[in-house]
């Protein structure tokens, strides 16, 4: 029995990759500034936190749920981390750990509300979104240490700077970590129990439960993993945001979730891929960074992200309908 190999052209991820290349080409063609190394560098720099959030939220979306608390959560953890450094003299490594721990904590809360208490995912996370936003706005605006300050080493995780001042060479090594994380999570999704049960929950939760899977545990874990990545995103966010502002972060989740949908996750769950998320997020990032270079206000990106999200989901729904009609 041999199966016909599917054409690469029918893979949404490949098409999205083409879109990424096309967008890069268009922006580079239209704007001289855009094609400079520093622009590309900062584009990558600002994509890390979005990407980390997106990797995390891919899992809830595959289960047919969603996590709306990632944007405000990320900002909240970064604020608390910053406060620890500035006001309590904690070393940066402690603040980083706290970020991750808080992420896991809120993730667990989301997981319990959704997986154990059966609240609708969007509603439960809308509430934790408000809660983390509120908690964040109780902090004061706090800058994490700058590159040259004590504790500034954490910037090198994402951007390795050799030399000082204008002549310094900067390398986006964060991109390397992202590739590694994406491959790791793609592996986790396809080749581990956690990943397989994530898909099973999204596809047919009752069947999964009747197969003897501890559905509640894995459902909670999905949100814990999402929270963990949000915690990591908080570190990446602190690295690129000179001063994290309290009360912000609402709407940042949209870029991440939009990216995941562009990457081809099914609107009703059951299918998704981390590689897809990886390419999807760059569509959003290119629009966000590129539009001002071709003379459009940055806010256009918000409108376009909204429309892109709907189009991506509509494509999925139409595909489903066609498949069902056959």
């Amino acid at each position: 029995m041999t199966k016909k190999k599917k054409s690469i052209l029918s893979d949404q991820r490949f098409i999205v990759l083409l879109v990424v290349i096309a967008l890069t080409a268009i922006f580079s063609f239209m704007s001289k500034e855009f094609r400079q190394y520093n622009t590309m560098l900062s584009l990558l720099d600002f994509s890390y936190y979005d990407l980390l959030m997106a990797i995390g939220v891919t899992f809830p979306l595959i289960t047919g749920g969603v996590d709306l608390s990632i944007g405000t959560g990320m900002v909240c953890y970064a604020l608390i981390g910053g406060t620890l450094i500035r006001s309590h003299g904690m070393p940066v490594i402690v603040a980083m750990l706290v970020c991750v721990l808080l992420g896991v904590l809120i993730g667990t809360l989301n997981g319990v509300l959704i997986g154990v208490m059966n609240l609708p995912p969007f509603l439960a996370t809308l509430c934790t979104c408000m809660i983390t936003r509120g908690a964040g706005s109780l902090c004061t605006a706090t800058p994490w240490p700058g590159l040259t300050q004590e504790g500034g080493w954490f910037h090198s995780i994402f951007k390795l700077t050799i030399g000082t001042g204008r002549s310094a060479d900067r390398y986006p090594i964060g991109f390397l970590w992202m590739v590694i994380l994406v491959l790791l999570m793609e592996f986790v999704l396809n080749h581990t129990k956690f990943g397989r049960y994530t898909i099973a929950i999204g596809s047919n939760k009752e069947a999964a439960a009747l197969s003897g899977i501890n559905v509640k545990f894995y459902h909670v874990m999905v949100y814990v993993v999402c929270g963990l990545f949000t915690g990591l995103a908080a570190i990446a966010y602190a690295a690129v945001t000179p001063t994290v502002q309290p009360g912000t972060g609402a709407g940042l989740e949209m870029d991440a979730i939009g990216g995941v949908f562009v990457g081809g996750v099914a609107a009703t769950g059951g299918y998704g891929s981390v590689l897809g998320t990886f390419v999807g997020i760059f569509v959003i990032m290119l629009l966000k960074t590129g539009l001002p270079y071709i003379g459009l206000q940055a806010n256009w990106q918000q409108i376009i992200t909204g429309l892109v999200l709907i189009v991506a989901v509509l494509i999925d729904i139409i595909k489903e309908k066609k498949a069902a009609a056959l």
Binding site: H191, I199, A200
Partner: peptide, 23 residues
């Protein structure tokens, strides 16, 4: 009671997948 998005083999062994290390 089948998970439509998984393969036949994955469905047969769901809940008791043979493992090789982590995978």
């Amino acid at each position: 009671n089948m998970v439509g998005d998984l393969t036949v083999a994955q469905n047969i062994f769901i809940g008791r997948e043979p493992k090789k290390g982590f995978r």
